[in-house]
């Protein structure tokens, strides 16, 4: 009884919250990760890596950054699969 009461007090209208609701720390973490990954890809140029090492590192950091932006910032990770496939399959085919 007391538990239910305190719960109701701390969370007056949980059903009212609609749309994408994720803790702010998720976005801050991804923001930080994107900074680190961008810094790494900058270092690839700074240290003058050449040839296949350069290209594979550039692609690796690029895909990681793109994946984080699409999945978390654009909320693709939480969308229904029907939409995810409709967008990502044609992109992958191009």
């Amino acid at each position: 009884m007391t538990h239910a009461e305190s719960h109701g007090h701390a969370n007056p209208a949980p059903a009212k919250l609609e749309g994408q609701a994720h803790p702010i720390s998720v976005y801050l973490w991804i923001w930080g990760l994107l900074f680190v990954l961008s810094f790494f890809s900058y270092l690839v140029d700074y240290f003058h890596f050449q040839g296949f090492l350069r290209w594979s590192l550039i692609l690796l950091f690029m895909f990681l950054k793109a994946g984080l932006i699409i999945a978390i910032f654009m909320h693709m990770a939480w969308e229904r699969l029907a939409l995810v496939y409709a967008i990502l399959v044609p992109t992958g085919r191009s």
Binding site: I24, W31, Y42, F73
Partner: peptide, 22 residues
Amino acid sequence: AIMTFILISSSGTMAMAVKFGY
């Protein structure tokens, strides 16, 4: 490099704007 960091930061603030919007 600076432009890259600026654009990433703008994405970060946008993501938080969406959250506070909801």
